[in-house]
Design a protein around this nucleic acid. Structure first.
Length: 865
RNA sequence: GGGCGGUUAGCUCAGCUGGUCAGAGCGUCGGUCUCACAUACCGAAGGUCACUGGUUCAAGUCCAGUACCGCCCACCA
């Protein structure tokens, strides 16, 4: 057994088998096979960084499903690819440049983009390595990147198509502006956090009177851009302000008082200052009431020329100065503590500035309707179901999607402006062309200096096309015909809006088909104390480190084992260690079979030993349960089920039996079934064992998933035998028999079971430490009594204290009495008799009889002590 | 302000359509180096299933409310 070491060493096998699979094209499907297809699109990782444990969880679920389906005869495709991740990537590259003492402005657009490409190449390789290490069966031959040439062309095409359909528009609106990234963000790319802040009460003088109106605001600095004060028309306190003009303090600007139901009289003073260029709702009010818009900020959130003496200062500095000045003028009435939501950039956590800006938007309502229907009609199923609520809520209230980004890294917007004909306004399309290709000249004036829009598209504007562009759409390619629509999407719920809903919309809109039929949401990973994983806390382990320490299989198995269905995962290394030990257990079980059953066939013979029949029945039940769990995507329960079956049925009992009953026939057969069932979770070790045992196919990946096993033989004797052995072990423990002391037992039982025991004496002797077995002999002297149905077993207590045995029996009796009373009450209950099913009733009755039986026997045994 | 999820042994979690559902793993304690595995084996202890009502012959299991924990959405400055 030199080549079968007693401990499993993942490091020695993993790399080899991954290469083996890849070299043999096992990850690459054949579109021309007649098999049904099963496709999963990987949620494209950002090239920005390395994969986290979250990816490990996410991807291993997909790998398990892919491998399971492949074993079940499907032509499987797991599409690999990465996302250019516009802002995220640009941010990190900018940081890198800064640390090198340069910046993107110095480089210029072209050089900067080239720099990002270099970065991308480097990090894509890190991600690929991580995926290989984990054993993921992604199809490398089809790998794609959202900025690949062909992919980019389709993104641009889609932009033009949406424009032609009237689903795109450009306009000046309040958008979320990240001053740090210098770009617009979509609503979904903003995160809000509640922070302690203050509510400032500021007095605004009324023109031509001594009146003052007090407004409440959390952002006093924006008053520089105020263009009105708004009150509720039903608010009696302010009716006298009708037609009045306010003198805006500091700026000395005259602004009107407007009336709108929007204002809540209960909040603050009931008077609201309106800053249309820097607040989303103020902007809407301004449009409604025809107010002036004053933009007071630059791109980096410093004040511009409209801010007068404050020009050049940043937001915090202005706030301080404005407050100071107001105070000096006696216009700051008071301040109070207030918790307010602060909107921050998802990527760099800089506070968002709502800002007027000219951007491109997608009209979402028309896209949302069919997407809602697809889920409502069950054509797309979400797992767990409860996510449907969230999905519906977002789509029913969907707002238009701001897709332009003021970045350089991304798909440049295919819009061209004629420097002569286009007047720069957003209201007219004069001199503006939306085109997949750069137009040679302006179709109106013939000018050849057409200028392309400087902006790029939101990353998600490319990734929402992922399921079909990767397969060749819009061309009717073989891949597209065979693998689209895909089947399962596996993702975290955090991108249900950003990605899932949008893919559904895009799929239906552009291909006319739903892009996938099941969406499996998995929880988020937290550390063992329930904290979010983050770099700063240092609680985010590197998957690669864990693989090196425990093995990839161990990591995959452990993480599935602890992933709950409804709650976040609390991760700790301990769980990976459980996986590691499980692998070692499996390894050693195989090793035992290799030693003891080297020459056996890996099939089921005609005639079974009772042990074979018993374990085959257990195996069959396990297969059934595992299949059920797969149907509901309950991978945690599959891991649990297989763990329990392999360890506690197969190893603890069956393999022990095989040592004592050498006529057993199915160890090799079972080993083969077991490693096939475990293969989706533990690809490396199972392939390694498969090859060691030469089970037939070139790779375990080409095997077939175990079918159900029909077992006709009665397995009752083995089950009873196990119980008897367990009970004797308990007696050993209670009476502190020395480990090597051999017990003498006398057994009274039915003829059948007596014959069974007599024919299998080595088993009870070894597993229960029994020296002599006698049947039906009168028992004399103190003994411990074990009562099972049809069996009485007396363990001779030579030299031991019978009082302790009495105590045990008393305990047993009191337990039984409790159970008997409980069931009796039920059985005489008229409601129960009327309503319980026959199956239930007969089961209960049988249990009742068993207990009564046991009790009577124990009572008899008590007398004997 | 709406909405969702969770609350079961010390810890992390299973418990589907109400009647063997009071479970597993880890941890703890006691005992074994038994020739596949001490990365193991054998055994034990530990919970009135968050709380309060209700439905039912019968409730971790269904309903309502309460309390904590977590999350999502929302234009109250």
């Amino acid at each position: 057994m030199n080549d079968f070491p007693p401990a499993y060493d993942p490091g020695a096998t993993e790399e080899k088998w991954y290469k083996f699979w890849q070299d043999n094209g096992l990850f690459t499907p054949d579109p021309r096979s007649g098999k049904p297809t099963y496709t999963i699109m990987i949620p494209l990782p950002n090239v920005t960084g390395r994969l986290t444990l979250g990816h490990t969880l996410n991807n291993s679920i997909q790998d398990i499903l892919i491998r399971y389906k492949k074993l079940n005869g499907f032509e499987t495709l797991w599409m690999m690819g990465m996302d250019h991740a516009g802002i995220a990537t640009q941010v990190v590259v900018e940081d890198k440049l800064r640390s090198e003492g340069t910046n993107k402005a110095d480089l210029g657009r072209e050089k900067f983009v080239a720099e990002v490409w270099k970065w991308k190449e480097q990090y894509a390789e890190v991600i690929r390595k991580q995926i290989r290490k984990m054993g993921f069966a992604v199809d490398w031959t089809r790998e794609q990147f959202t900025l690949d040439e062909r992919y980019s062309q389709q993104v641009i095409r889609v932009f033009a198509a949406l424009y032609d359909k009237g689903l795109l528009y450009r306009g000046e609106y309040i958008i979320n502006w990240c001053p740090r990234c210098g770009s617009a963000l979509s609503d979904e790319q903003v995160e809000t956090e509640e922070i302690p802040g203050k509510l400032y009460y500021i007095r605004y003088p009324v023109k031509d009177s001594n009146d003052l109106v007090t407004v409440a605001t959390t952002r006093p600095e924006t008053m520089i851009g105020d263009t009105a004060v708004c009150v509720n028309p039903g608010d009696n306190r302010y009716t006298h302000l009708k037609g009045k003009t306010i003198i805006l303090p500091i700026m000395k600007r005259e602004i009107p008082v407007i009336f709108d139901e929007y204002v809540d009289p209960e909040f603050g003073t009931g008077a609201l200052k309106i800053t249309p260029a820097h607040d989303a709702y103020d902007f809407i009010l301004a449009r409604k009431h025809g107010l002036e818009l004053i933009n007071i900020m630059n791109n980096d959130a410093t004040m511009n020329e409209n801010a007068g003496q404050y020009q050049g200062l940043n937001r915090d500095q202005v706030r301080e100065k404005v407050l100071k000045e107001l105070e000096e003028q006696g216009l700051l009435e008071r301040t109070e503590k207030y918790r307010l939501p602060l909107a921050k950039c998802e990527r760099c956590s800089t506070p968002i500035e709502p800002r007027i800006s000219k951007q491109w938007f997608v009209r979402m309502k028309p896209l949302a309707e069919p997407a809602l229907k697809a889920v409502a009609e069950g054509r797309i199923k979400l797992h767990p179901k409860r996510w449907v609520n969230l999905y519906n809520h977002w789509l029913e209230n969907v707002r238009d999607w701001c897709i332009s980004r003021q970045l350089w890294w991304g798909h440049r917007i295919p819009v061209y402006y004629c420097p002569i004909c286009h007047d720069g306004s957003s209201e007219t399309d004069q001199g503006m062309i939306v085109s997949e290709r750069r137009p040679d000249s302006c179709p109106v004036c013939g000018n050849k200096q057409m200028r392309q829009d400087e902006d790029v598209l939101d990353t998600w504007f490319s990734s929402w096309l992922w399921p079909f562009v990767t397969l060749g759409w819009p061309d009717e390619t073989e891949d597209y015909a065979r693998f689209y629509p895909t089947q399962t999407l596996v993702t975290g719920w955090d991108i249900i809006y950003l990605w899932v809903a949008r893919m559904i919309m895009a799929g239906i809109e552009f291909t006319g088909k739903i892009p996938f039929s099941d969406v499996v949401f998995h929880p988020m990973i937290r550390d063992e104390k329930g904290r979010k994983m983050s770099k700063s806390l240092g609680n985010s382990p590197e998957p690669i480190d864990l693989i090196e320490k425990f093995g990839a299989d161990a990591l995959r198995f452990g993480i599935q084992l602890i992933t709950p269905r409804e709650q976040d995962v609390l991760f700790s290394e301990k769980t990976v260690d459980v996986g590691r030990r499980f692998c070692n257990k499996l390894w050693n079980a195989a090793r035992l079979i290799a030693i003891n059953h080297a020459d056996q066939e890996a099939g089921i013979p005609e005639k079974l030993t009772p042990y074979d029949a018993w374990i085959l029945k257990e195996t069959d039940q396990t297969i059934e349960r595992v299949n059920d769990y797969y149907r509901g995507f309950e991978l945690n329960n599959i891991a649990r089920e297989l763990y329990g079956y392999v360890w506690h049925q197969f190893c603890d009992w069956y393999l022990e039996f095989t040592k004592l009953a050498p006529t057993v026939q199915v160890p090799r057969f079972l080993l083969k079934q077991i490693i096939i069932m475990l293969h989706p979770f533990l690809p490396f070790i199972t392939e390694d064992l498969y090859q060691r045992f030469s089970f037939g196919k070139k790779s375990i990946m080409l095997e077939s998933w175990p079918g159900r096993i029909a077992v006709k033989d009665d397995t009752g004797s083995v089950i009873k035998y196990k119980e008897l052995i367990e009970e004797i072990r308990v007696v050993r423990g209670i009476f502190r028999f020395a480990p090597k002391e051999e017990l003498s037992v006398v057994i009274k039982t039915s003829d059948r079971f007596r014959i069974f025991i007599a024919g299998n004496l080595p088993v009870i002797k070894k597993l229960a430490g029994v020296g002599s077995v006698e049947f039906d002999r009168p028992v004399d002297g103190p003994c411990a009594t074990i009562v099972l149905s049809e069996v009485e077993c007396f363990v001779m207590l030579t030299g031991l204290d019978p009082n302790k045995e009495k105590q045990r029996l008393l305990n047993e009796l009191s337990f039984l009495s409790g159970r008997i009373d409980e069931i009796r009450n039920r059985l005489v209950n008229p409601g129960y008799l009327e309503k319980a099913s026959e199956v239930t009733k007969s089961g209960e009755q049988k249990r009742f009889d068993d207990f009564i039986d046991k009790k009577a026997k124990i009572e008899r045994m008590m007398k004997r002590l």
